[in-house]
Amino acid sequence: MGRFLMLVALVVAAATPALTLRLTGLQVGPIGETAAFGAAILAAGFLLSWGAEAAERHVSQGLIIAVVALVTVLPEYAVDLYYAYQAGKVGPGSEYVHYAAANMTGANRLLVGLAWPLLVAIHWARGAAARWN
């Protein structure tokens, strides 16, 4: 249990600079912000996966996968919802109409064109490795 708490503390420490930047409004430049928020996203991913593994004792695996999938795509849909709301508020001729369409099509291209084939490749590689052993 001590090792796990140490890992959780390390992950929380990795996310703290991004939280500090967001709450204080401090500007550290694009490289610093990219590093801080990238580390925070990675840390959140670790916490999410650890929580999902821990929840498997009490909740079905299918429900956990559905919740994790929803949590991972929710920020993208929140951005698109903002663009769609602004487009409706400003009017049909606004730039937000194009932003909403471009954001959703770009997100779906990444998901269908990169994420799903990557999952298939990983699954195939694991199966091939198991056959060789």
Score class of each variant (00 low, 15 high):
132 W>V: 15
107 A>W: 09
87 A>K: 04
17 P>Q: 00
111 L>G: 03
69 A>V: 11
96 Y>N: 01
70 L>T: 12
119 L>H: 10
123 H>T: 13
78 A>D: 05
44 A>M: 08
31 I>L: 15
130 A>I: 13
52 A>W: 15
55 A>Q: 15
133 N>C: 08
22 R>C: 03
75 P>I: 05
119 L>M: 08
100 A>S: 08
36 A>R: 00
101 A>E: 00
14 A>I: 06
101 A>V: 04
78 A>F: 15
74 L>F: 07
58 H>T: 15
128 A>Q: 11
109 R>E: 07
98 H>N: 13
75 P>Q: 04
131 R>C: 07
8 V>I: 08
45 G>F: 03
15 A>W: 06
131 R>M: 06
132 W>G: 05
7 L>Y: 14
47 L>A: 08
20 T>K: 05
32 G>K: 07
104 M>I: 15
40 A>P: 00
49 S>A: 07
59 V>M: 01
126 R>G: 06
79 V>P: 02
100 A>I: 10
8 V>E: 01
83 Y>R: 09
122 I>R: 01
122 I>S: 01
21 L>S: 00
15 A>G: 01
10 L>C: 06
132 W>L: 15
28 V>M: 06
99 Y>P: 11
95 E>C: 03
22 R>G: 02
129 A>W: 15
24 T>V: 06
17 P>E: 00
98 H>Q: 14
16 T>F: 10
10 L>I: 10
42 L>A: 03
104 M>E: 10
68 V>D: 03
44 A>H: 02
52 A>L: 15
44 A>Q: 01
2 G>E: 07
25 G>L: 05
56 E>W: 09
58 H>N: 14
99 Y>E: 01
69 A>L: 01
69 A>I: 10
114 L>F: 14
103 N>K: 09
122 I>V: 15
117 P>N: 06
71 V>A: 12
93 G>Y: 10
51 G>M: 12
42 L>D: 00
43 A>H: 02
123 H>R: 08
117 P>R: 04
26 L>R: 08
104 M>L: 15
125 A>D: 02
56 E>K: 10
60 S>V: 09
21 L>D: 00
120 V>S: 00
119 L>K: 07
5 L>G: 02
58 H>V: 14
52 A>P: 13
35 A>T: 05
24 T>N: 00
49 S>N: 04
26 L>C: 00
111 L>D: 10
70 L>V: 14
79 V>H: 12
48 L>K: 14
13 A>Y: 05
112 V>I: 09
88 G>W: 11
82 Y>R: 12
28 V>H: 02
85 Y>A: 11
107 A>D: 09
73 V>S: 04
18 A>H: 07
104 M>C: 05
71 V>H: 00
13 A>C: 11
25 G>H: 02
115 A>R: 09
55 A>G: 13
73 V>K: 05
7 L>A: 10
19 L>P: 01
35 A>K: 03
33 E>I: 05
11 V>P: 05
126 R>M: 07
112 V>E: 05
101 A>C: 03
73 V>C: 06
1 M>K: 03
5 L>W: 14
54 A>F: 08
38 G>S: 09
41 I>E: 09
39 A>Y: 05
127 G>A: 08
78 A>H: 11
72 T>N: 08
34 T>M: 11
132 W>N: 12
48 L>C: 04
